[in-house]
Amino acid sequence: MSLNTAMVEKYRNNFLQEVAGNVEEGDWVKMCMQCGVCAGSCPLGNAWEHTPQKLFMMIRANKRDEVLTSDSMWMCTSCYNCIVRCPRELPITHIMHGLATYAKKLGLAPQSNPTQWFSETFWNNMMKKGRVNELKLGLSLYFKDGFVSGIKESIAHQKLGMNMMKAKRMAPMEIMGGHGVKDLSGLQKMIKKAQDIEAERLEANSK
């Protein structure tokens, strides 16, 4: 049985409980009073299909699939406007990331969502050397939609790149593989362990 199915069984259609129990800061969702100040305060609000406050309402209404497959929470840029203004002090930014992560773990996150793709790219990039290789990460972003558009993007940003090199904010040799952290395998082990604990926790929660 997949984790997703297990969770569905376990919470027998009480998605609010499921979120409270499994999503980072998800316990706060119950405290929302639907004032909508988060929705209005989000600088990228226009891009959201469902606003945070609406997502919280959907959670209460057991719209599990709609919430977890939504790309809305992937739109959050962590500006913290909503947290600052929320009259109930809900850590909305964190809940958005928590929901996104949870959806990803259950395999429900929207595949085509660029934010999700970028997050994954960022993660993989970082895990290779234990630190982010900015040059590679930048290039992979430029070439995301194919070779031709990648070249175009690179040319468009040529000046920016040159300036960054001059200011020693970018090292061209990093393309060769780049430097890593001292104890890479140690770090990888550590992360693996954390991931295992998290997976175990979810596994246990789903029982």
């Binding site: 639907q34 004032c35 909508g36 929705a39 609000g45 226009n46 469902h50 406050q53």
Partner: peptide
């Protein structure tokens, strides 16, 4: 005045 009407989500 800026915000979102939460009844049905209208900016």
């Amino acid at each position: 005045v800026k915000g979102v009407d939460t009844e049905g989500y209208h900016r």
